[in-house]
Write a protein that binds this DNA or RNA. Sequence first.
DNA 1: TGTGAGTTGATTTTT
DNA 2: TCAACTCACA
Length: 779
Amino acid sequence: MDTPLYDLHRSLTPAQLAAVTHVQGPLLILAGPGSGKTRVVTHRIAHLLNVGIPARQILALTFTNKAAAEMQSRLATLAPGQPVWMGTFHRFCARLLRMNAALVGLAENYSIYDMEDSRKMLISVLEEEGVDLSHTSPDAVHHAISWAKNHLITADKYVPARGLQIGRIVERVYPKYQQALLRANAVDFDDLLLHVATMLRENPEVRADLDKRYQYIMVDEYQDTNLAQYAIVRALSIDYPNLAVTGDPDQSIYGWRGANLDNILDFEKDFPNVKVVRLEQNYRSTKAILRVADQLIEHNVRRKQKGLYTDNPEGEKVRLFAYPTQRDEAEHIASQIAQEIHSGRRRARDFAIFYRTNALSRQIEHSLREHVIPYQIVNGLEFYQRKEIKDVLAYLHLLNNPRSDVALLRIINTPTRGIGKSSLQKLQEHARRKQIPLLDAAREAGLIKELNKKSALAIAKFVAMYDRLGESVLAPLEEIVGKVLTETGYREVLQNSEAEEDQERLANLEELLTAAREFDIRNPGQGNLEQFLEESSLVADTDAWEAETDKVTLMTLHAAKGLEFPCVFIIACEQGLLPHERSIKDYDRDKLEEERRLMFVGITRAMERLQLSYAQYRTFRGLSAPTVPSMFLMELPRHEMDQSSNLAALNATSDWEEPEGDVDFDFGANVDDSSQLPAHDDEYSQLDEPRPKKQREKTLTSGLLTAADLLARQESPGRKVPINAFKHGMTVSHPEHGLGTITALAGEGPKRTATVQFFGDSQERKFRLLFANLTPVEE
DNA sequence: TGTGAGTTGATTTTT
DNA sequence: TCAACTCACA
């Protein structure tokens, strides 16, 4: 049933309503922080549906999976069951490319290389070309290529900018890199966009079809679009220019990734007759917080003037604290949080701590642990980036795309099977000479003269194993993953290892199996390997953040965008960190303004309480040094803020709530203050024990049970062992066949099936667990 | 060929 | 500080 219109529109302000009810023609929504933007977007989609626009004509593009999921779930309550396509740019492009791969010289089973993969590929190209890297690094070259791609500059069009040192190298290597990718039937992240943009430009009829197909396009966070994304959206909005974008120039923080602020600043020029709606009322923060944010961002030149206001209460003063050391900073923040939690005033999830770089989280973590405060970190090492996961996925990648050399290189000797560096080199040599994929070269190992017998045999065995795995590509994902773990010996190696680290890896792989199983449930039917790989390639760190758990959140300022918390701490507001030194050193105003926006984003996450702080002394990269407070702090309305130097408070034993008196905030005093901080260096390094690996744990599953799980848990009459007790790699016994090992599991509930390899049996056997007479064997 | 110690070199943000 | 990479040795 459609939601009646009046219901949908109730509780919207006039400005919001104007945006929601705009249907035909371009629309620009300038949405300040906390202005209910997501609400407006989802209501607008619901409105479009209400006025009879088919769901399949609507497309909503976001930058993160999280944002897409958020929208999806909100829309689900407004307009249940409507198949509106929502997702990230990259995912959308992956889809389009899948359907039109041939147009850009790819096969439809192409692989998506992540940063690590494409970097490896680039390095091998650089080596092949014999490029001298003494004055640059592979990463710099990579970045330059990425920059070019984001600016729609293809390999054949690349002309080095004058004075750009690296230009010469890029000019030479970019085409080779691109060829290598095509040969491997692979794309990097940037290619997803570039290929689609190219495809739309060169195939007018395809473009027209898609334009017609997606008549109503919405783009979230438009200020973060780069030229490629702009071109794509533009190309799909020519015949049907019903493009609605939302964004805030003041929250553009991805310039370094090619985001082009002009896209939003010039939107009105690009699309004539655009309707502009400004959402300036903030529903999130107190007046005090908003004033601080506003004053800071006033210092930027490249922006659209915007008046932020709120009807929220004045609230408490924003705090600006100077601590002697980072340890004091962390300790005091942790104590404040602990006290608020213990007093029952707030819960752990109400707090967030932001910092400019990931490395800054360590001290905070340490203090939070000391105070036994639960926290979650959104940081670099996410699930799909872990070695063991990437290894196993590489097997899957190679199964899906036999031309993926990067995948092959990753696993041909993982776990080790006697194929060393020199053998590999010879193999690569051979592949290069004949211009064939490595896997094909491996098939000819016996014919390669340079290879000794032993190596050739090892390679042949690898190929045989690969082909054996290949027989299962149409099986459910869980089964494929299980097979990979068993057949490759990967599981066995870890099981036999004493190292705690390896046990953890085993647990992570168990999680991967669970993920595969959940995927199978979501996607019944055959041959979904490709889709599974695509999904796993396009997930990001911040997607792992869980709003529901009751934990303090630690994250970078970048990751914080789009979120809100009652209490926010921004630490290390120091020159060189925020703004980051790289944005200061070449006096680039744009870069500096981006740093300022970053701080603006951080500040505007806070609803009720905000504390900015810096340490007068900070140990960074093992070196301790006095700091200079962030220049941005000078731009704030300091007179109306609570400025305390916390030395006094730190000496007090009990009450943290009221930091002692308003000591004047002296920006110069910190530098020569080292006398009162004797030898803290050593002392701290002792305290600073390495972060336990456990902290990395991130759950892929919610812990919720599906109906099928429950079913599986039920004890069926006549059997002692619940179906769930059977795990991959487990030893089991069978009255007829004797002892064996479970090599794969698949299916759900009564259909759950185990594949067992019995000892001394030449082939595997499959059993329905519900009926089979299998028993786990205690080891 | 594989392992481990030792050294180096780099350290922003991420789809 | 730490991870990635090199190089020497078994």
